[in-house]
Amino acid sequence: MVLLPFRIKVKNAETGATVEMELEQNNTVDEVIESAATFWNKEMGTYVVRKGKKVLRGTQALSDAGVREDDMLELVPDPEGG
């Protein structure tokens, strides 16, 4: 079975900006984080992606994480300072 690419929106929690991202079902959450952080020229740091109230696991494929066409994910800083 051929899985077609699909599009989602990713929101930058720090600025409110959004970007559309074209993905395949086997892309991972880690890849979404890296692509979004690179697009927004984020400094190297720690981030999570959430869908609704749920933080998505980095290694999960988007299909396993329940990410579907037109979903909105949010890139949130996970600060490490103390």
């Binding site: 880690d30 190297m44 720690t46 981030y47 980095g58 290694t59």
Partner: peptide, 14 residues
């Protein structure tokens, strides 16, 4: 650690 991903691993390695 359940909530950590590759961005955390990169910072830890750095």
């Amino acid at each position: 650690q359940c909530g950590m991903n590759r961005s955390h691993a990169k910072m830890a390695n750095l």
